[in-house]
Amino acid sequence: MPGGADFWITQFLNGLQFSMLLFLLSIGLTVIFGLLHFVNLAHGALYMLGAYVGVSAAAHLGGYWSALVLGPLAVMAIGIVLYLTLIKRMRRAGPMNQVLVTFGLIFVIVDIVRILWGDVALGLAEPASLSGPIQIFGVSYPAYRVFVTAVGLVVMIALSVVLNRTQIGAMIRAGVENDAMAACLGINVERLFFLVFCVGCALAGLAGVIAVPLFSATPGMGTDILIPTLIVVVIGGLGSLNGAILGSLIVGFIQTFGAVVTPGLASVLVYVLLAAVLITKPAGLLPARG
């Protein structure tokens, strides 16, 4: 087994960085679940779209930073189209139909990506300012990975402030807990849902862009990330910000440390954990509905 403090600090930072990526994806998914009771399996495909739009934006416009702005915006626009054409109609169609339709959507989006960008992995260079390593906790660590972690943390704090300290946040929490009563207080839950959906899509796009310099953009990236993201949502508890934070950290660290400590068992560990949580706390560790 590899040893040394430096090694473990590096793994810790890797775990944190992967957790933040999972957080950016799972927060949108979990709040959409919680507020809309809507199962959007295409969330991972939106993440992939963010990555590809980012690659093209960087190539044709202004490099990485234009990708970071345009990726989320484009995915949000695509999300709005999906919402108006499909999701709004599927709102009351029941989970089975939603799963089937959004599952089908994955194939549609993957094929569109294959047609437009081809079936190869595409890269995106991190900005020059973030290309080197920096010293952190006494180890030399890629600056770009620190940046990814920081983006996740900033989004986490911003969402936490909005959800816990503003009126619109209180409206969202009320809608997640009891949408009928929220409506009886004059809250337009449908419009609130649309807003949350847009933010969730933009965050999926953001995650997609910042992931490319780490993993490259591939047509399979959306499905690869969907499973751990769904596990985060289930472990954390539907609809809950704190659940998404905790779930992301647990899954992110288990996958990262599992891969170095017990490479053979790494992928199994997360499923074992999932099963354990489902047996002991079926609603997840920190569910929104108490």
Binding site: A170, A174, V176, E177, A180, M181, G186, I187
Partner: peptide
């Protein structure tokens, strides 16, 4: 009409189950 519109028109509802939001403070 949708419930939120009916509420906005000026009907306030106190349900049998009270439906206080448990995840929100009293103030919220």
């Amino acid at each position: 009409r949708e419930p939120y519109r009916i509420a906005t028109l000026g009907i306030a509802y106190v349900p049998e189950t009270r439906d206080v939001f448990g995840a929100l403070t009293v103030e919220e």
